[in-house]
Design a protein around this nucleic acid. Structure first.
Length: 422
RNA sequence: GGAGAGUUGGCAGAGUGGUCGAUUGCGGCAGUCUUGAAAACUGUUGAACCGAGAGGUUCCGGGGGUUCGAAUCCCUCACUCUCCGCCA
């Protein structure tokens, strides 16, 4: 959520920024400013009336105490007019406040200056590439065939027990999955992130805190009896640790990581994009989350990018980094880098990580601030996948396949306990 | 699931209708003392909003009500804890 003070002060810059998302927010901004103006004027009146009421009540109290019943009763009569006024103003103030809030919720974050205007994936900027795309002397198979051939993943069994998008991993497939989780966590911990095992369900307030609510409830699984949401990412429980928190000073850098399963309804998706592991309703992910002083955000983002690069290097996967264009960025993000691994078998790039800075957008909703010379200032939040498992598993299988089996990257062998799947 | 107790400032914990944004203790900060530290003592220490400022308003789990006046009384919802039951 954008800060109202910022909208008051930097209207033009915000409009220009949102234009990069192909959004013309001028009407919304005007409505916000008008509602804000109305709210402030009603609020000022309400405050005045309330002040008078308080004064009167005090006077009446003193009169009663000193036994001046008649005077007190006379004054009491005067309060009824003020009371009516106060009630009316309260209704107004609340109404303005609500519509202001609703309007503010509709505005996405303002893109960083590095972000270019664009509509879709093609407009994203390719800023980095590494690794070599493997050449096979045979016809490379997609991961769903490999998974079947080596009995690593059973999609049909998942359909039987739950439904599409809920696969079983079995045998070496399960082992590989567990190895990856352990590997990612160990790397994150070595990079200074504190590990958390979080709840896999969150309450409504947490959904609002990170921006899944309102509006995107359709993307989350919902447990009606208890009013809980299954987490779509560890970002939600980890970031919400700092909901309603004021850090004591500006000297902080909070680095958290956590492995969780992630649950996403993914309503409306179909076709080859969802084949195999490409898109699931339940998948595993190690997430890194940071809470930073605004001055440190750029550096933190760089560190996170380096961290993810390192993971992919160690997994010996060919990848590229895209800086997302305005139209392709998430609602809350100010700047997002996607990591994509090339799969020579599917002959396409698979998104395996998304690293973003949100600046104050999440912090404003979370009310996450720090004290700075008696002032309270909003913190910055960042997060990134490091990494999401299914597409990593897919690209490991596809890129490291040989005619006789699948080679496990060296860095992973200590975790899997085997070096080849045959 | 049954029964009961509770929700107050960073924490602990008073406060049952009037000057209470709230006693006190701990913690934090500043100071006195000290070569320094500890101890002791003194002072200070919540947040949000409106306002150029002076100042004002709001917040004692959320919402509503009674009253001139509510942390305090009533209604309602949520959450937490304890005991019993069930259970990994």
């Amino acid at each position: 959520m954008l800060e109202i003070q910022r909208i008051r002060q930097e209207k033009e810059a915000i409009l220009a920024g949102l234009a990069k998302r192909n959004i013309d927010a001028s009407q919304t901004i005007e409505a916000i400013l008008e509602t804000d103006q109305n709210w402030r004027s009603a609020k000022t009146q309400l405050d005045q009336v309330a002040a008078e009421m308080n004064q009167l009540a005090r006077t009446i109290g003193e009169l009663f105490k000193s036994g001046q019943q008649a005077e007190a009763t006379a004054l009491k009569e005067k309060t009824s007019v003020l009371k009516t006024q106060e009630a009316e103003l309260k209704v107004q103030v609340n109404a303005f406040e609500e519509s202001l809030q609703a309007l503010l919720y509709t505005l996405p974050n303002v893109p960083n200056e590095l972000v270019v205007q664009g509509r879709e994936a093609e407009d994203n900027q390719n800023i980095f590439e590494a690794g070599t795309i493997p050449q096979f002397g045979f016809e490379a198979q997609p991961h769903w065939d490999l998974a079947k051939k080596y009995k690593l993943i059973d999609f049909e069994l998942g359909v039987k027990v739950t439904g599409a998008g809920f696969p079983f991993y079995r045998g070496k497939g399960a082992r590989l999955q567990r190895a990856l989780i352990q590997f990612f966590l160990d790397e994150a911990i070595a990079a200074g992130y504190e590990e958390f095992i979080s709840p896999h369900m969150v309450n409504e307030a947490s959904g609002y805190g990170t921006g899944q609510l309102p509006d995107k409830e359709g993307q989350m699984y919902y447990v009606k009896e208890d009013d809980f949401y299954l987490i779509p990412t560890a970002e939600v429980p980890l970031t919400n640790i700092y909901r309603d928190v004021i850090l004591p000073d500006g000297n902080f850098s909070i680095k958290m990581c956590g492995y969780t399963p992630c649950f996403r309804r993914e309503a409306g998706s179909y076709g080859k994009d969802v084949r195999g592991l490409n898109r699931l309703h339940q998948f595993d992910k190690v997430e890194i989350v940071r809470v930073e002083h605004p001055d440190n955000t750029a550096k933190a983002l760089d560190e996170m990018l380096e961290h993810v690069k390192n993971l992919l290097d160690k997994l010996e996967l060919p990848y590229r980094i895209l800086r997302l264009c305005g139209g392709d960025m998430g609602f809350a993000s100010a700047l997002t880098y996607d990591f994509e691994v090339y799969s020579a078998a599917q002959e396409k790039w698979l998104e395996v990580s998304s690293v973003s800075r949100f600046d104050t957008f999440q912090a404003n909703r979370l009310k996450l601030r720090f004290k700075d010379d008696k002032k309270t200032t909003l913190c910055h939040t960042l997060n990134g996948s490091a990494l999401a498992l299914p597409r990593i598993l897919a690209s490991l299988l596809e890129n490291h396949q040989t005619a006789n089996g699948i080679q496990i990257p060296k860095a992973l062998q200590a975790y899997t306990g085997f070096s080849v799947i045959e």
